[in-house]
């Protein structure tokens, strides 16, 4: 669109679009990519309470992976992440298929399934912390009904607390996954389903053989979005368990924060942040790349 011609005004016109974009792009370059490099440098330094630019190679990474705490965080992320992704997708798909059976009150139900997504993780954590409180919450209530031996104290049990994080996370995100699948279901060509019906396929067969395979893009999007949210989860853990009991619900995100800001191990904290970044990049870069490539002009 840009044509060359003499005249300063004309040249300004040519450069105007780029000038308009430049401040935003510069902000992103500095505050995102510049800062990432900065963090990478810190992760290879001897920084403790304050940044120190003294080269230490991969020392911080070695110390990071020597920390039982970090391994705990990784293990918890694996448990939380896989439960979060699998259950959200299973539940979301199940609800979407149920809702797709010309449900008269769909307009009422859909917003109910989805509203948790509008809440802050801190609010979600606070609510579930209260609900799962063994002394006064759900457990106490059921006991009050007469079932004296009923026990649901996962929130305070180190071996089970991470599952409460998963429960709250699933409660928050599964409605969103449902909506993604529902959009996918609604995008399927009705003539194809009519043809399958005429061909004698049962509803179950239609879903198993035709509909669910056609939802592949929705599956992919759901996995990417959920994996990305799982790695970044921070607020939910802080509000629900504070990372405890002990370090039972430590995640890489909480690990990074406490090592950097409260335990004065900035180099190790930076190293953990870089590992998180690499994890996200491994998921997002191929995905974004293929999405951008596909849209050919």
């Amino acid at each position: 669109m840009a044509t060359t011609s003499p005249g300063a005004l004309r040249r300004l016109q040519d450069w105007l679009p780029r000038l308009v974009l430049a401040p935003s792009f510069a902000l992103v370059l500095v505050f995102v990519y510049g800062f990432i490099v900065w963090t990478a440098v810190l992760s290879m330094s001897t920084s403790r309470i304050l940044p120190v630019y003294k080269w230490a190679g991969f020392d911080a990474y070695e110390r990071l992976f020597a920390q039982p705490n970090w391994w705990m965080a990784l293990k918890n992320l694996a448990i939380f992440g896989s439960l979060y992704i699998i259950v959200c997708i299973a539940l979301g798909l199940f609800l979407a298929i149920l809702l797709d059976q010309r449900i008269r009150i769909e307009g009422v139900l859909r917003p109910i399934y989805l509203y948790p997504m509008a809440l802050s993780f801190v609010v979600t954590g606070t609510a579930w912390k209260w609900f799962l409180n063994p002394g006064m919450g759900f457990q106490n209530t059921v006991r009050g009904w007469g079932w004296e031996s009923f026990t649901f104290d996962w929130l305070v049990r180190p071996d089970m607390a991470i599952y409460t994080v998963a429960i709250a996370g699933i409660w928050q995100a599964s409605g969103f996954v449902m909506a993604m699948f529902l959009a996918g279901l609604r995008g399927i060509d009705s003539e194809m389903l009519k043809a399958a019906t005429v061909d004698g396929a049962s509803t179950f067969t239609i879903y198993r053989r035709i509909v669910i395979p056609l939802l592949r893009p929705a599956f992919l999007s759901a996995v990417i979005v959920l994996a990305h949210m799982a790695i970044k989860s921070y607020d939910l853990v802080i509000a629900l368990t504070g990372g405890g009991p002990g370090n039972a619900t430590e995640l890489p995100s909480t690990f990074m924060y406490s090592y950097t800001f409260t335990r004065s191990q900035m180099a190790v904290g930076s190293a953990s942040a870089m590992i998180m970044l690499m994890g996200i990049a491994a998921i997002m870069v191929p995905y974004l790349y293929s999405e951008l490539r596909e849209e050919k002009r």
Binding site: F35, I36, P51, I231, A273, L277
Partner: peptide
């Protein structure tokens, strides 16, 4: 999509 932990300190 970056984890904001990677820009927090700077």
């Amino acid at each position: 999509f970056i984890p904001f932990q990677s820009v927090l300190i700077p």
